[in-house]
């Protein structure tokens, strides 16, 4: 089976700081892949590059046979709306919108009518145990609930890839596990592949497979073997 997403030889520097020095990544459809590494190793940068949020200085990223590195902002935005979902440590919800509106946002940006979008969002929120919280604003939710809203939003457009960068980084271990379980379960149900960046092995253990990033280079033991 052809990989869904391939990143090869990624280099990226921020001024004098080198974040990536030849990192690779291969993601198959439907699999959950963890990227581990100590802080500052470049694992988040690898995710950002792979998702087209940042452009690498050199290297190629192929998504579904297309070169991500050569797409325009409009094309990449469309990709983010339709094919990708994101769950970050925090700050990705629009604080002014309700949970329901936040979840429906990607659909609405894609031109789907409000009522249809919100119906789908309601269903997803129910599945993630947030039925009573649809009208709450992010500020009124606990950290774990916020992350579940973020998971719902990431999955609403039935993406092919869900990018999660330290999704439990701001949570206590119990809510962290809840979020991870819901994330992995929902991703498997909808057949989305997951790229999971974490420094925590217990979180990485939710993945099917893991790679380690150290000093901007990735180690994929499974491929090396």
């Amino acid at each position: 089976m052809n990989p869904l997403l391939i990143a090869e030889g990624l280099h990226k520097s921020y001024g004098p700081t080198t974040a990536l020095a030849g990192a690779d990544l291969v993601l198959h459809a439907g699999e959950i892949l963890s990227i581990m590494g100590p802080s500052g190793s470049g694992k988040s940068t690898l995710l950002h590059c792979a998702a087209g949020l940042t452009s690498p200085d050199s290297g190629h990223i192929t998504y579904d046979g297309r070169l991500l590195t050569e797409m325009s902002d409009v094309e990449r935005s469309a990709l983010r709306r339709r094919e990708f979902g994101f769950v970050f440590q925090f700050g990705q919800l629009v604080p002014e919108l309700t949970a329901l509106e936040n979840v429906a946002l990607p659909l609405r940006l894609d031109g789907i009518r409000k009522r249809a979008a919100e119906r789908r969002a309601t269903g997803l929120l129910d599945r993630l145990g947030l039925a009573g919280k649809a009208r709450s604003r992010p500020g009124e939710l606990s950290g774990g609930q916020q992350q579940r809203v973020a998971v719902a939003r990431a999955l609403i457009a039935e993406p092919k890839v869900l990018f999660a960068d330290e999704p439990t980084g701001a949570l206590d271990s119990v809510s962290g596990e809840q979020v991870m379980e819901m994330l992995t379960r929902s991703a498997r149900q909808s057949g989305a592949a997951v790229v999971l960046v974490t420094h925590d092995a217990r979180i990485a253990a939710y993945a099917d497979r893991g790679i380690v990033v150290r000093d901007g280079r990735s180690l994929d033991r499974a491929r090396a073997r």
């Binding site: 990485a204 893991g210 180690l219």
Partner: peptide
């Protein structure tokens, strides 16, 4: 490295 893989495999199984 080999040990890490072993550990991670075990952790994935436990999870």
């Amino acid at each position: 490295d080999a040990q890490r893989d072993e550990h991670l495999d075990a952790m994935r199984e436990l999870t």
